[in-house]
Design a protein around this nucleic acid. Structure first.
Lengths: 329, 329
DNA sequence: TTGTAGGCGTTATCAT
DNA sequence: ATGATAACGCCTACAA
């Protein structure tokens, strides 16, 4: 039922090297013999065995992609970007969900090494030393998306500036009491950078930083909803909330609507990411748009360049974000 | 920098067969030699080459999963289910986005064959004869999720009954004018089955079927939004709309809110799928919940059973759906 | 232009 | 308990 190159060779009455040559069209082979081989291939329904091939030529045309969780709105979009360009360059991708669990990250990394992937794309909000060492020690090219570390290749946006812009926008709209729901404090990207942008925007506007307007969230809807309730149930509630992720922001929207607070008249809300749903909920969500698909596509493009030993103009790619004004602000 | 089993053998002063035995602990080896080998492995940072291993033992511990589009809300959830149980059984997964494009489906299928995956999970709304033939001709086990064909193993829900239930629920609530936004007419699952459920529910209630209340949608937000507008801008508009996917239903919600139509007082909306956002939008969406994660998890479980040559109780798994009543109805 | 043969890194059979 | 050695299916000098 399953044939190999030898079977084809026998059937076509040639040697296996000739078969190999025609299926890879690597060297000239006489048209006549070529035809014979092709016929044999088709008759037998022969498919070359990529595993054997990989063993010999030492590359697998597959890459691994490590992300926190595919069922989190943000990642499918970037994975799609990765896959599309991977596909263009004839790579397949191993999908690995790490749940931001250091153990899982290390474990998956080991598996990808054993399976001889040609490269790895890594997303995760923090790279502990443990993992970093493994990254350095291995000779598989790795590119980071949405995070950064040492001198590893990465594609990111300027999170600090982006959130600073968003908060400044709110302030310019006349808001004096602007609250923030951040990510985890230990998370350098969503926790630290986006909060820092908030702080700088306040400072630049001469507004006072107020602990009471800062809430630590956890990325997902629920923590946004809870944080929103807390903020909105205070005496002197904020008139605007900058939320460090869209999913949390959608939670804030719900908290506000449940209290019959008019958006945006009584409360302006700005999110971050521009996930698909941001433009679909009602009222639609103003947000800092990360170019998620591009981050994936470009990250993969960078990886292919490394794999092809093309020169990179820059190991650190900084992509443009944009602000999308919708109904919520 | 990269060592193989030979290097380890040399370093440990044993033969490669011994090394192989300890890393697979396949046969008894004297504790002392075992220790030596383990030490050598660690000192060299040796990782077995899974490709070479696969070539020899003829399985790759990887499976392929073909889905329409990971950036479509519905699929990440099921992919996560697949990945979680795949991981339990030490499989890795190749992610393949087909965009429901027959060409791509066939192409990916060929690649997966060449890469010697142990099994395939397939999702897609229609299996043309072309593809079906390829499926049959190959000896890689395939399990279908959310769709069905011939006697191939599959895991699905009863779409007809589910939508019939949903529409009946609406009718029982007193609605006489119930509209539907379906999937594509040629799609046996979302287009045909879910519409048929609608038709049967009407008939059972003695309600008349009215072409004007039936709109063909295209799964995504926009077609729901457009369909909703069309339905709501008629003279004698429906008081309830059953929408064959949540994403479209969220579009209908927006169309209604833009017209200041009160949900659910003036218009009840019921979706299908129970994607993550269904419970998060405002008003939250009543819907027929497909157990997406379970569909993935169980689909993969079925596949492992086939791969382990365990007996399947049933090649056709029918999962339970449930109706979730939220604010929109 | 075509064929022969060695080797990619494993596993597994067969001796020892 | 351990070691040689022949596959696994393919690619690629090298030879013819």
């Amino acid at each position: 039922m399953k044939f190999n190159i030898k079977d084809v060779a026998r059937k076509a009455g040639v040697s296996i090297s000739t078969v190999s040559r025609v299926i890879n069209d690597s060297k000239a082979v006489r048209p006549k013999t070529k035809a014979k081989v092709i016929e044999a291939v088709e008759e037998l329904g022969y498919k070359p065995n990529a595993i054997a091939r990989s063993l010999k030529i030492k590359n697998t045309k597959t890459i691994g992609i490590m992300i926190p969780d595919i069922s989190n709105q943000f990642f499918p979009e970037v994975v799609r970007g990765v896959e599309d360009v991977a596909n263009m360059y004839e790579y397949n991708i191993f999908l690995c969900n790490t749940d931001l669990d250091q153990e899982k990250e290390i474990q998956y990394f080991g598996i990808l090494e054993e399976k001889q992937v040609d490269g790895i794309i890594f997303m995760g909000n923090i790279i502990r030393e443990d993992l970093a060492k493994r990254f350095e020690a291995c000779d598989i090219p790795i590119v980071l998306i949405g995070t950064d570390y040492g001198d590893m290749p990465s594609v990111t946006i300027n999170n600090l500036q982006a959130s600073k812009d968003a908060v400044s926008y709110l302030i310019k709209k006349g808001h004096k009491k602007v609250a923030i729901i951040t990510g985890k404090a230990y998370d350098p990207v969503i926790g630290v950078a986006r909060k820092q942008g908030y702080i700088e925007a306040l400072k630049e506007a001469g507004l006072e930083y107020n602990e009471g307007l800062v809430i630590e969230g956890g990325y997902r809807f629920k923590s946004g909803y809870e944080g929103g309730k807390k903020l909105l149930d205070t005496e002197d509630r904020p008139t605007a909330i900058f939320v460090a992720s869209d999913e949390m922001a959608i939670g804030v929207i719900r908290a506000a609507l449940e209290r019959d607070i008019d958006i945006p008249k009584e409360l302006a809300i700005v999110g971050f990411d521009n996930i698909d749903m941001a433009g679909k909920v009602y009222p639609s969500l103003s947000t800092v748009a990360q170019p998620m698909y591009e981050m994936g596509a470009i990250g993969m493009r960078v990886l292919t360049k490394i794999l092809n030993e093309e020169m990179l103009e820059d190991r650190k790619v900084l992509l443009n974000y944009s602000f999308i004004e919708r109904e919520s602000s």
